[in-house]
Amino acid sequence: MKDDILLQLNNISVVYADVIQILKGVSLAIRKKQIVSLLGSNGAGKTTTLRAVSGLLKPENGKVTEGTIEYEGRPIQNAAPETITRLGIIQVLEGRPPFEHLTVEENLRVGTAARGTRSYKEDLDLVYHYFPRLLERRKALAGYCSGGELQMIAIGRALMARPKLLLLDEPSLGLAPLLVKEIFQIVKRINEEQGTTIILVEQNANMALQIAHYGYVMENGKIVMEGEASDLRENPDVKEFYLGIAASGALKTYKDVKAYKRRKRWL
């Protein structure tokens, strides 16, 4: 079972600017070829967890102060992003920032940075296979692309690096529901066909749990719940707080909210 684990976070703490502690002992284990979704409200520390893995804490003046992050058995906490991306971990940033003055195809080519400059034609074909829309727009400047296209560019760019572990930060942010569905289907296909392990951070818990194999729930910089995605979907707490379905189907009252707070303290 142990060989099966690609990435393991052991009790990590992350501190920004030497004073603000965001993660307070987070432990995760990600199995190979799975989609693992990370749920939680705003400010729970999901993005910080991803940054800790991808090495992007440093530009934000953050640091892993305790615990270890092991990727394929070797420690990578606080390593430079160049090193980590070369190991095959690529993060797709939240808000999908494009390189505005570059064309779509050039945007995709930046993705080759993590693995040297060997021929990229095959990878381009692969990306266009998943996102035929990008093939049509390949000569357009990314600054003029729509939100959905930008998300495709962002995932496509990451795919160009042929990652073993893909960290997706809120791919559904600000997209129309149909488009979200399409993007999630593609993510699922990438996972199935390429065997890419994916950590998916989402607000849209319903969607995320539909394609994920496993899930973690975070609150205030801690993991409060974990389990198979199908179990989480059925869990009354998750249902109520993240999927928005009240246990009895009735309207929530103030009493329920108080009960929720009390229940949360137990977590």
Binding site: E100, E106, N107
Partner: peptide, 23 residues
């Protein structure tokens, strides 16, 4: 050239370039 494109990507959006492994 690839390096030229990397340089332009850094000029455009440094964190994103960093996330893709541009040195």
């Amino acid at each position: 050239s690839s390096h030229g494109i990397y340089m332009r990507s850094v000029a455009d959006h440094q964190p994103a370039a960093l996330s893709l492994g541009v040195n």
